[in-house]
Design a protein around this nucleic acid. Structure first.
Lengths: 169, 169
DNA sequence: GAATATATGTCAATAACACTGACCAATTTT
DNA sequence: AAAATTGGTCAGTGTTATTGACATATATTC
């Protein structure tokens, strides 16, 4: 291949990380995310849902009673965008809305049994892929994976990732 | 089908991986990818480009002389989708097409200077984020990150990720 | 109690990015 | 000569997102 013009460049950085190492990381993120999300697509198609539905179902499942505003903060989309998909999920009885007892402006979201069943189908497929990678990589590698991934996430959002771990301890 | 709840879930799996660990990984992938791709958005907006443009510019930059078909295989989109964005990039002189000397059906793609300059702007921002995470995590963690991420990628696509490492050795 | 802020929802218009299907042209392979 | 490959294009469609404007209910503050 004709190489070496755009790619030979050492482009050294002050952290002693080679440019290639960083490019590799960029590609790992691209491909891993592409294949990881692709995992659920077949299931979603059967329900005539897209990835937006998946994200909502996942985060409502992981955070029962989450409010609309909190969900927006996680997804970082506009409320109009959320509304379209969320209304569908409510209409088709995958999600229920309950008015908060203390602050009656808030609508708390929960999965119905139907929604929980779908969530399980979707999450299990992705979990299996991750579990296989974890098993092959070993415990130390998994720890490194966690550390690096957390470091990539915006500092202010790191504590949005799965609180059980910290709560449980 | 609908078994025990969804979330009281010990839901033990045979690999001794707790369900929470796998859910955490799912969320790490979501948030890290969200913030990582968000990094380039400001730059793209200035050029009136979207993420599709970014992906093309990135992969043409990383693989100078790549053919349209190879690019399609990497991006896993249809050629009609690629065409729309690629034509724009060619029209605006970020990318050039050159007919392959040996097989005149093939169009090989290259970044122009203008394209390479934009690619650098985009990649540098993302690299900085990854470099910071790598620096904070340490070399062992980085190795683990690489191993796990590769494991998540479809087996048949693992060798699409950055070949320099293996070629160079 | 009135004014203001907050949480949510909705209408309308628009755009980015993807899809399918059908077809064409140039070129290479068999 | 026929078939396969590579790439491009036209037309129509769908999903997911956007911005802006406005409405409603409720809570908080002065």
């Amino acid at each position: 291949m004709s190489d070496q013009q755009t790619r030979g460049r050492p482009r050294v950085n002050p952290l002693f990380l080679r440019d290639e190492d960083l490019r590799e990381a960029i590609e790992l993120l691209f491909f891993a995310y592409r294949d990881f999300t692709g995992e659920a697509d077949a299931v979603l198609d059967a329900f005539d849902f897209g990835r937006a539905h998946h994200r909502i179902i996942y985060f409502v499942g992981a955070n029962p009673g989450i409010s609309v505003g909190e969900l927006l903060a996680i997804l970082k989309i506009t409320k109009q965008s959320l509304s379209r998909v969320l209304s569908q999920l409510v209409d088709e009885a995958f999600i229920t809305q309950e008015t908060d007892a203390n602050d009656r402006r808030r609508r708390r979201l929960y999965l119905t049994d139907k929604g929980a069943s779908l969530e399980r189908q979707l999450t299990d497929r992705q979990s299996r892929r991750v579990a296989a990678a974890f098993r092959d990589a070993g415990a130390d590698a998994v720890a490194g994976f966690r550390t690096v991934m957390r470091g990539i996430i915006n500092e202010e959002d790191r504590d949005r990732v799965l609180r059980y771990r910290d709560e449980a301890s």
